[in-house]
């Protein structure tokens, strides 16, 4: 399968944080969820992909091209939403339309106006009058309106109500109906990813924990709930992490089929991305 984005051994050192050998790839036509707790390195990775930060080690290829050497060509085909609001507040969506028409050769004013209408954004109002959710909608409308092939979205649904989130997830799913298009989306709302993502990359403390297809994650990983006596019988190598609760133990297992064969514990729950993240970060080994 052809990759639209390849990140290889990306490393970046700050005084109090290090991004270490981050490696993952996003195949064409797929949605990849990029998850991790606050400060794990998601935004730094996304900024490196976009050349917002440019002093790092490693290699990033987008559309098969080096992202530093071919920034101009690459950036015309990318739609971006950053974690922080970036449009000057004194401008209006109408102004953004005029500005972007002068930046993107394939800017589609009709499509942009359609998104504004669908999102209920008034084109003549200053952005400073918009709520956080409305601002995010404007950013998403802008990211989509030049027919990009790759969307790179850092927390695009933060501040949005569930109805708006569902609406936007629907737009993203429609976007990848075109098999040439892909999405890299970083979010804290992992329940959304379970519905739309094909791949999930999990980063913790600047290191990639795993980058796998959702199919593999939900097929292989499982959540075992057991008593203390049962827990004591389970070998360390048969689980990834565990957490001791008030009344039971929760174990994250990486191969639920072989675990089930080995132990008499009958119920292994389906893992959620939320639970997986919590156990990976907070659980003990």
């Amino acid at each position: 399968m052809e990759n639209i984005l390849e990140v290889s051994n990306l490393s970046k050192k700050y005084q109090d944080f290090t991004l270490e050998n981050v490696t993952f790839s996003l195949p064409k036509g797929m949605i990849m969820g990029f998850i991790g707790e606050n400060g794990a390195g998601k935004t730094t990775t996304i900024k490196a992909i976009l050349n917002v930060i440019n002093k790092y080690e490693g290699e990033i290829k987008i559309f098969g091209l080096d992202n530093k050497k071919n920034a101009e060509k690459i950036n015309t085909e990318i739609g971006v939403v950053l974690d922080e609001m970036f449009f000057p507040e004194i401008l209006t969506p109408q102004d953004i339309d005029k500005i972007m028409a002068g930046i993107y050769k394939n800017w589609d004013t009709d499509l942009y106006q359609k998104y504004l209408k669908d999102f209920g954004l008034i084109a003549s109002n200053q952005i400073k009058t918009f709520s956080k959710g409305m601002r995010k909608k404007l950013e998403i409308a802008t990211a989509l309106s030049h027919h990009p092939k790759l969307l790179i979205l850092d927390e695009p649904t933060s501040g949005l109500d569930p109805v708006a989130r569902a609406e936007i997830m629907n737009i993203f799913q429609n976007f990848i109906q075109n098999e040439d298009c892909s999405i890299l989306i970083s979010t804290h709302i992992t329940s959304e990813l379970e519905q739309i993502a094909d791949y999930v990359t999990f980063i913790n403390q600047g290191k990639i924990v795993f980058s796998e297809s959702c199919l593999d994650i939900f097929d292989n990983y499982g959540l075992v709930k057991c008593t203390e006596e049962e827990f004591k019988q389970i070998k360390k190598e048969d689980y990834v992490r565990y957490q001791k609760n008030k009344y039971n133990y929760e174990l994250l297992v990486a191969n639920k089929k072989s675990f089930q064969k080995k132990y008499s514990i009958s119920t292994i729950d389906k893992i959620t991305l939320d639970k997986l993240m919590v156990l990976m970060i907070k659980g003990d080994k």
Partner: peptide, 11 residues
């Protein structure tokens, strides 16, 4: 408004 971070990701 953090414009520069966005601007550098534009063509």
């Amino acid at each position: 408004n953090n414009w520069d971070a966005y601007a550098v990701a534009l063509p």
